[in-house]
C-alpha cells in the first residue's frame, strides 16, 4: 500500500482483469472491439496481445449472445468477463441478464453457479444523447440474483473489479465514462474490496451525502464548498449498489440526522428512492429533515450541451440540496 504509483480508472480496470487472468486460466473476456482494438474506451488495451485470441475474444455485434456466452460458459465452469460497450445496450441483452443469468441458480434449486462479470460503461456528459448516456443501475438492482457495482475512483475500481471476477454470482461492473481518465494511486498487488461494503469518503457531522460513481466526486466538490459555509458533510460512497451497505448509511444518518442522496440517474424510481426509504424505515426517529434526493429530471438524456449540462446533477445541485436540508428546523 505504500507505493504512490498512479493509474487511471481505465488502467485500474485493465490491471484488475490482467492480474485475474494471470491467476486463473478459466478467466476470459469477450466483447465488441475488445481484442486488437482494446475496447472503444481502451479499457481492454493490450490484453489480447498478452493473453491471446483464445482468452480475449472479439465478438460480433450480438449483445444477447455475448451475455448468453457468459451464462453458458460460467454455468459450465469458466469465469467469463463479458463486455457490453455502453450500458444502454443492456436493454438489447435484457432477457439473458434478467431472466437467465440472474435466475438460473434459483430456478435450478441452487444447482447452478454463475461466476460471471458483465462489464459496461454508463453515465452522461459526452453529448452522446439518449441511447448512449443512460444510468440504468436501478433496473439491475431491482433484479434478485444480480450484484451491481459502480466505482467512483481508480483504487475502488481495481479492488471491486477483482472482487467481481472472484465472485461466484453474476455481477455487473458499471464504469462511468467520465471517470475513465481519473488518475490516483493504486497498489500494484492484487487486492479485493468486498462487494456490499461502502466507504466513508469524508467524515463529517452535520449532514450525510450518499453518492456513488461520478456523483461521489461531485459530492466531494460540494462538501469543500459547503465547508467554507460552515457545513460539515459526511460523504458515503456505497460502491456496491446491490447488495447495498445499508448499515453504513443508517449509522451515518443516525449520527448527522440529515441525509441527501445524489444519483446521476433519473430521480423517479432510482436508487435514491430506495435509500431514502430504508433510512425512514430504520432511522426515522433520528431525522431532523426529510431525506432529500438529487437526480436527473424525468426525461431521456438530451443531446445538446446546453440541455445536458443542466440535466446532469453536479456539485452545485448537490450543494443546493444540502443547504435546503440544513435549512429545515
Amino acid at each position: 500500500m505504500s507505493d504512490e504509483r498512479k493509474l487511471t480508472y481505465a488502467q485500474a480496470f485493465n490491471e484488475a482483469v490482467s492480474q485475474m487472468m494471470e491467476a486463473d486460466p478459466d478467466v476470459f473476456c469477450a466483447g465488441e472491439d475488445i481484442g486488437a482494438f482494446g475496447g472503444v474506451f481502451g479499457t481492454f488495451a493490450g490484453l489480447q496481445a498478452k493473453f491471446g485470441e483464445k482468452r480475449v475474444v472479439d465478438t460480433p455485434i450480438s449483445e444477447q449472445a455475448i451475455v448468453g456466452l457468459g451464462v453458458g460458459a460460467s454455468v459450465t465452469g469458466l469465469r467469463p468477463i463479458v463486455d457490453l460497450m455502453f450500458m444502454d445496450f443492456i436493454c438489447v441483452a435484457f432477457d439473458q441478464i434478467v431472466n437467465q443469468a440472474a435466475k438460473l441458480k434459483y430456478m435450478f434449486g441452487g444447482d447452478a453457479t454463475l461466476p460471471m462479470t458483465i462489464t459496461t460503461a454508463g453515465g452522461g456528459g459526452l453529448s452522446a444523447a439518449a441511447q448512449h448516456s443512460q444510468s440504468l443501475e436501478a433496473l439491475l438492482c431491482h433484479i434478485p440474483g444480480l450484484k451491481v457495482v459502480m466505482p467512483s475512483n481508480p483504487y475502488d475500481m481495481k479492488g471491486l473489479m477483482i472482487s467481481c471476477i472472484k465472485e461466484n454470482n453474476p455481477t455487473v461492473m458499471i464504469k462511468h465514462k467520465r471517470l475513465l481518465g481519473m488518475s490516483a494511486p493504486v497498489p500494484t498487488e492484487a487486492y479485493g474490496i468486498p462487494l456490499g461494503k461502502g466507504n466513508i469518503i469524508r467524515p463529517g457531522k452535520d449532514v450525510t451525502i450518499v453518492a456513488y460513481a461520478r456523483m461521489a466526486n461531485e459530492a466531494i466538490s460540494a462538501a469543500k464548498e459547503l465547508a467554507e459555509e460552515g457545513i460539515d458533510c459526511e460523504i458515503i460512497d456505497p460502491r456496491t449498489l446491490q447488495p447495498l451497505d445499508t448499515d453504513l448509511i443508517i449509522d451515518s444518518a443516525k449520527k448527522t440526522n440529515r441525509v441527501v442522496v445524489a444519483q446521476e440517474a433519473v430521480r423517479f424510481g432510482g436508487l435514491g428512492a430506495e435509500i431514502a426509504s430504508q433510512i425512514q424505515e430504520l432511522a426515522f426517529d433520528y431525522l431532523d429533515a426529510p431525506v432529500s434526493r438529487i437526480g436527473a429530471p424525468f426525461s431521456p438524456v438530451p443531446f445538446s450541451p446546453a440541455l445536458e449540462s443542466q440535466y446532469i446533477p453536479d456539485a452545485k445541485s448537490i450543494a443546493k440540496g444540502v443547504r435546503d436540508v440544513m435549512a429545515r428546523r
Binding site: A129, F303, A306
Partner: peptide, 10 residues
C-alpha cells in the same frame, strides 16, 4: 430537426 435533443445519432 430534433430541437437539439437528438443530435447526429437521432
Amino acid at each position: 430537426y430534433c430541437k437539439g435533443k437528438g443530435g447526429s445519432m437521432h
